[in-house]
Structure formats: C-alpha cells, structure tokens
Design a protein around this nucleic acid. Structure first.
Lengths: 417, 417
DNA sequence: AGACTTTTTCCAAGCCTCGTAAAAAATGGT
DNA sequence: ACCATTTTTTACGAGGCTTGGAAAAAGTCT
C-alpha cells in the first residue's frame, strides 16, 4: 500500500495504546513501570495510558502472589480483564465443525465439536450451523465471578469470530471461494454470521492462519518461521518480518499445490505432480496400496497410524510411500527456502505423527534442492494437536483485532464505583 | 520486527515529512495545496512542512510554464532541488563495472562503464575500482547552474552509493557473500568504500533490487509484481505489499536456483535441476549445441541473438533449447504463483529479446503447474535495457534512503539570502 | 521508628496538527 | 481601468499527547 498517510496525535495515541496492549499480551501480567520500560514510553505516559485502559475496563489490577521481595514501593500488577470481551475461534473441516470460545485475557472458556455432513450444504445452512455452534459455546461459558457491582459485564455476547477453513478464502475475509469440505463455490459467511451474532466475523484459510498461534510466544518473537500442515491435504503458513503472510488474490501459501514433479502423480486439484499428490494422506495411502483412487472423504487417523506402523515393521510399499512423501515435502521446502530463506518449521497434522518416517527424506530433499543445501538442518518443531493449534491461532488473530479496535476507539467508559 | 515502538511528536514530524517527499517523488512538481490533498494533511500543516523543506534546501520553487489557466491565486510550484544531493548507482557484473550518478531530483548527471577483469581481485582492489569509478562520475558531472549567491551548493560530493551485484550479498547491505563475478568470498565493500567516498554505501543483489525502479511510477503504485531477469543467470525481484522483498539470511529470491526437475540438468551452483540449468544463457546454449560444459565467462549478447535467429529459422535443437528454457521458467513462475499470488512480470535480460521463443512455453508451464492454471495470463512487460533498469532501481533506492534521512534530521539549514 | 528505595501520580512545557480568519494573487465582467 | 470573485498561501489560537521533574505513596532494611 502506498504510504501517503499522514499522522497526527490520534495516530500516536492509537499506536501507543496498541504497543501497551501488545506488551501485555506477551508478558501476561505487568506494571506501569514495566510498560514504560518495554515500550520506551515515559513513565508518565505509560501510567496515563494504563489508567485509561483500566477505566475503559480492558485491564484490571490484580493481586500477584509470588511477587519478588524487593525494596521500594511495589508496582501494582495489571492484567487483561477477561470479562472485557469474548472471542470465538471456529474451524470448518471435512465432516465436522468445531470451535473454542475464549475471554479477552485469552483464557479458554469452552470448546465444542460436531460431526456434520456439510459437504452438500448451502451457505445459509452453514451459517446456521456455525451460529448454533457459537451460541452453544457462549451458553456453555461459565459466568465469570462478577464480583463487582453488577453493571460489571455487559450482557454476554461474542465480540469477535474467526472462522478457519481448509481451502481458498476471499482475501477480504468475507467467505469461502472453494473448500474441499464443501461442494458449493463462493459462499459468503462473514456478513450473515455477523448479522446473527452481532459480532465481527473473519474467514481465513486454516493453514495460513496458523502462525498467529505464536504471535505472542516469547520464543517466537521477531522470528520468521513457517507452519506446515501435512494431513489429508498439505498446507503452509508463513510469518515473515513479524507479520503473517496473506496473499492478495488467493488466501494462502498453497504449499501442497506447488508442483513437485512435472507430469507426476495426479492431485485432487486436477494438476499433476503437486506436493500433495505425494505427501497428502490419500497420496501416501494410494501409493502404499497400489490403488489409483482419490477418496472423497478424509482418511481416519488410525488408518494413517496403522500405515506408519506397517512401514516401521518393514512393509516395503508403505515405507516407500512415506519416503516419497518426505522427498516431495523436502523438495517443496527447498524450493520455498530458495525463494524466501531457510526457516524453522512448525509441523502438524498426521505427518507430524509419522515424522520418523518422513524426516530423513525431507532433509535429503532440502539438501538436494536448496542452494548449498541451506536449510537442510532447519529446526523442526512438532505440534501434534492440530485443532488446538488452529484454535490458538484463531483466538490470537481475534484478540489482536480486538486490541486494534479498542485502541482506536477512545472509549472512556464505565466509571467504576 | 516486534512492534514495541512508541510514537511521539518526533515520529509524527518524520512520518509526515516523508509523506510529502514521497508524494513529490511521484508527481515531480507539486504545490502546497496539492500536497495537502495528496497526503491528507491540513493545508496549514502541508504548507508549514513545505516551508521547512524549502528552507532546508531540499525543495525549491520553480516557474511552471504550462500552468492551467484557472481563476484564483495560482499555486507556487515546488520541486526537488537537484543540487541538494547526489546518488551513485553502481553495478558489478562479470567482466565489467559501471554506474550512473543522479541528482536529488533523480535526473541523471553522468554514466560510465569500464571493462575490467575483476574475477580474481581482492576486496581492496574492488573498492579502489569502484571508488575510482564513482569519483570519475562525480568529476564528469556538469556543474548545475549555481545561480544563487555561491554558498548555494556545498562542495560536490556523493551522498549515497548503491552497489548492485549478481550473487549473494550480506543482509546488512555491507558486502558480498558470493558472486559469479568474483573468485573470493565474503568481501566487505560498504565500510571501506564509505570511508573513501564519505558517503553511505549499500550493497544489494541486482535482481532483488530491480523492483525499486518502479517505486514511484504511477502505473505501478500499490501494485505487487515481480521482476524477472533471464540472462547468463536467472534471478527475480519481488514487490509485495508495497515494499521490495529482502531476505533475512540470503539477499534475494533465488529464482534461478529453485529446483525445476529433481535430478535434472547440472547447474552452476552444483545442484541438479535448477531453473537456471535450463533457462540461463549457458544452459540454452549447451542444450542447443549438445555440449556439456558450463562456460566460465558470460556469453556475448550476439551469440544468444544468433541462437534465437537460428531457432526462428527452424533449427530444431535451438528451438527445443528455448522451449525447454521457457518450460522451466513457466514451472518456476507457477510455483511462485502458487506460493505467493499470480503477479505481473517485468522481464529483462537476454531472455526478453527471445520472448517470442519463450513465451508460449512459459505460459504453458504456468498453466500446468499453478492451481487452476492461475497466472498463465499474467501480464508480461518487457524491458530490454537491463543496465538502465538497474541504475533506475539503485537510484530510486538511494533517493528513498536519502528522503528518509532528511526527514529524520531536523536540519533547519542555510538561510537563503 | 526512621532512613532508604522504588513506583505512581501530578503538573507545567513542548511539538505537531487542525480549523478559521486574513492576506495575497490572478481572472472576469462592466 | 476597476471591482467582485475565486483560489492559494500565511497567520494565529486551540487541542491532544508525550516529556521531564517534583512530590506523594508504599514498601524494605537497620
């Protein structure tokens, strides 16, 4: 975007408030002094901003138990006020929808999962299903101890909804272009769901969203990395220069459909030789069984686990299938590394459970395809629970969006008694 | 980078000044009113900033000839004061160094080219050669009509030097990690050259720098696109989200070394199957001639032109060679498009001259490798003069850097008589 | 209990930008 | 030629946010 924008006092206020909230997201609990040090703001300014955020109900003073025994006046500990808002992270997959609701402090309040055959459904039905799920989540939320007066927390509602889905989503976050979980194309989700839940709704690709899960993790701060999902499909998310990569037209790094071998194996997308056509669950399975079909439904986790065990116990076909999968992934990573940079990889999905079978081939593939083999020793971090990762990511994304909105709105709200 | 930064009045001033300069870079000549409209600043603020920039000598009032005949007080036209600074864009290639010096308004003042065998040279020698070239450029600069008092322009010096080179450069812009033009590795250029010329020096990869050439072109504003160089080597530059992509570790999108075919043709880099091993000049030539060697020196332009003519006149081997080159490029682009997004391509180098031979295969390759063949119809813009493109890019990069510095420094300098 | 240390709060000052009003400079009509 | 009109530029007071220093607050240490 062109940088024609002016800046004025308003922008300064918004920016600095956001800096304070961002700092607090990282550390969880802080003090005015710590805010000043972390942000570079003067103590006066930091204190003033904290005061405003406290009065607006976003923050609250908390009693800290294990405070260090130092001389001098102890700082008053500040933390997010969970009750200030709620975020729902929803996930649409083949045959199921699920989600988690969290409070403004990021603490999970409830989770839910429903197996539904959404494949042939229309957009309207999908919106109803998602809306029901969200309201169910909200209902199951344990009312937080509303110790204060009673005017404390507004009527329970969800303030931000993030929908993660496999497939291609609109770049304006408004809906789904295409998804393997659905038959129909171009389904607008955000507008109708937003109308029903009275909350802002964003629809994103699950894989490209994943890096958001690490947004505030101290060990990932300022780090560029990639998230790699290897399951029925294969997808990637990128965090570059401190922000999560989002395409303009498509929505994601379609890692699974980067061509591996010209004219190679047939892929779901219709092309030949995609990475997914070697590394996706269905690809590994068909290679191991000598089949030629692409199953329409997702493959059960157990099936892949059994296949992995077979490979480990010497089944040659299975072994080769995993090896070729690893090779395709490795070459794909090598190609990405050549374009971008060698990056640490966070890996999830069924592939993460078969990493022992895949890793040697992956690293070898990188070695053969990247310049100087650079990146063949890239750190590999496994995350077995893909759902949790997606919920974390959606929640972080939603909270970041809320922080931005709250920073913008100069709400000098509810005078506490 | 983490967004812990605070903002204050200083930042506001810097940001807004930069917005004014950036606007002026785009339009060339402006007025206070136009600045206000373009930046969103109030007329008062815009006028005040322009006043400061005028007093500091960066801008000057100019007489505009073809001013429209409208009622009301005519706006005073403002433009960059060329004499305010000078930027040198230098280029290191196999067997030659060259460059262009431009004034602060971006107008070229002089160009120079020297054929030197730099291959075996040390860093010191290279610095001497570049320094000589730069000083020669400066000496050949026509003294601008110093109409004003005489205290007008400070003693002529270069204020910013940008060195573009094939190969890998340090991500801190300090020097060369490796280049096909040089034997030695890890040559620090910026520090010693900066010491000699008393100017800030930045060393960048030529291909990744190229998008900068379009930084202020109105038809490229806000546009994401890629620059593709196809010559002895193959390289790419990316402009994404309004900024030119720079890797953290490596310096560039090593498009030429993205693997095309696992285990394929031997590449200069030692790997097998790189795009360059099919699409580089040497690759096309060896395929056409049935040779097996990789020439150490660059291939003459004429040789490639003749080979192209041969292909056009029915030489099957040559025809196939170009076709396979186009195919490799197409698959490479398809892979990039799958990762990032379909992008318009600005193409330069010897490949741009053989585009009629390459284009069908390129587009076919994209069609076969990108999801839904998306991007097979991407706009292709040809730029035959690669040197001019690199000079433009280096100059734009240097000017942008100067704008930033000048915005930061609150120089309220030289009181004009 | 008093001295010391550290965190918060309070207040005047400084910098920008904004909005409005006044001044400046040219056109058009009579 | 003169006056009304239009448009750009300059001038001035106001508002918002940060800053730096001083004062107040709230503990620990001796």
């Amino acid at each position: 975007m062109s940088r024609l924008a002016k800046t004025d006092a308003d922008m300064v206020r918004v920016h600095n408030r956001l800096a304070v909230l961002d700092h607090l997201r990282r550390v969880g609990v802080t003090t005015r002094k710590a805010v000043s040090e972390a942000t570079g703001l003067s103590v006066s300014a930091a204190s003033a901003i904290c005061g405003t955020l406290l009065r607006s109900g976003l923050l609250e003073e908390v009693e800290e138990d294990g405070r260090s025994i130092r001389r001098g006046r102890p700082g008053k500990s500040l933390a997010f006020r969970g009750g200030a808002a709620r975020v729902a992270a929803l996930k649409i997959a083949v045959g199921e929808i699920s989600g988690r609701i969290s409070d403004y402090a990021g603490a999970p309040l409830a989770e839910a999962r429903r197996e539904v055959d959404i494949s042939g459904q229309t957009g309207d039905t999908l919106v109803v299903l998602l809306g029901d799920l969200a309201e169910d989540l909200l209902a199951r939320t344990i009312e937080p101890g509303t110790g204060e007066g009673g005017a404390g927390d507004a009527p329970m509602k969800i303030d931000k909804v993030v929908v993660a889905i496999q497939g291609k989503t609109h770049s304006d976050l408004s809906g789904i272009v295409w998804s393997p979980a659905l038959k129909h194309w171009n389904i607008g989700i955000a507008a109708p769901l937003s109308e029903r839940l009275l909350a802002d709704v964003s629809v994103l690709n699950d894989c490209s969203l994943m890096p958001e899960a690490f947004r505030w993790r101290p060990d990932f701060i300022g780090l560029d990395f990639a998230t790699l999902f290897v399951g029925f499909g294969v997808g990637m998310g990128l965090r570059l220069n401190g922000s999560t990569f989002q395409g303009k037209h498509s929505s994601a790094v379609e890692f699974g459909h980067i061509n591996h071998l010209p004219g190679g194996a047939l892929c779901r997308c219709g092309n030949r030789g995609c990475v997914e056509a070697y590394a996706g669950d269905y690809a590994i399975l068909r290679r191991a069984t000598g089949s030629d079909e692409i199953p329409a439904h997702r493959i059960a986790d157990e099936t892949m686990l059994r296949l992995g065990d077979a490979a480990r116990q010497g089944d040659e076909a299975a072994r080769t299938a995993f090896e070729e999968a690893g090779n395709a992934i490795g070459y794909g990573l090598g190609r990405v590394f050549t374009m971008i940079d060698p990056l640490p990889i966070v890996m999830t999905g069924s592939g993460a459970r078969a990493i022992d079978l895949l890793e040697p081939a992956i690293r070898n593939g990188i070695r053969e395809s990247a310049v100087d083999g650079l990146g063949a020793d890239a750190p590999l971090i496994l995350m077995e629970d893909t759902d949790a990762l997606v919920y974390d990511a959606g929640t972080a994304y939603g909270l970041a969006a809320l922080d931005g909105e709250f920073s913008r709105s100069a709400v000098e709200a509810t005078e506490a008694a």
